[in-house]
Measured scan of single mutants.
Amino acid sequence: SADYSSLTVVQLKDLLTKRNLSVGGLKNELVQRLIKDDEESKGE
């Protein structure tokens, strides 16, 4: 998976916004949300 932890919070929020995901929470939560979304989209 992508190394989201190396991105800035601003970059993470931009990715979340593009996916229509919540941008609330700490950086670690944003990273986990993106990883979870990646895993769910692979399952389709």
Rank of each mutant, 00 (worst) to 15 (best):
S22A: 10
R33D: 01
Y4Q: 01
K36I: 08
T17W: 09
L12H: 00
D14F: 14
D14A: 15
L34Y: 01
S41I: 10
K36G: 06
V31P: 02
G25F: 03
K18G: 07
D38W: 04
T17R: 15
S5W: 15
Y4F: 03
S22I: 06
G43E: 11
S6F: 08
N28W: 15
G25Y: 02
I35N: 06
L30E: 01
S6W: 07
S6G: 09
A2K: 13
Q32N: 11
L12C: 03
K18R: 11
S22F: 08
T8R: 05
G24D: 15
D3E: 09
K27V: 06
S41V: 09
L12P: 00
K36Y: 07
K13D: 02
E40T: 11
G24I: 15
L26W: 07
V23D: 07
A2I: 15
R33I: 04
K13F: 05
E40C: 13
E44T: 13
Y4C: 03
L34W: 01
D14M: 14
S22Y: 08
T8D: 07
V23S: 09
R33N: 02
K36F: 07
T17G: 08
T8V: 02
R33C: 03
L7Q: 04
V23R: 08
E29R: 05
D38G: 04
G43R: 14
L16P: 00
L12K: 00
D14L: 14
V31Q: 04
L7M: 14
T17L: 14
E39K: 10
V31D: 01
K18F: 08
S1H: 13
S41W: 10
G25Q: 02
L7G: 00
G24V: 15
G24L: 15
L26Q: 11
G43C: 13
L30M: 10
L15I: 09
Q11N: 04
G43Q: 12
D37K: 05
S22H: 10
D37W: 13
S1D: 09
V10S: 14
E29I: 06
L16I: 03
N28Y: 12
S22L: 06
L12R: 00
L34H: 00
N20Y: 06
V9T: 07
V10A: 15
L12M: 03
N28K: 10
K13P: 00
E40N: 12
K36P: 01
L30Y: 03
R19Y: 03
E39V: 09
N20T: 05
Q32E: 12
S22W: 08
S5I: 08
K36W: 09
K13Y: 06
V23G: 06
K42M: 11
L16D: 00
E40Y: 10
Q32D: 10
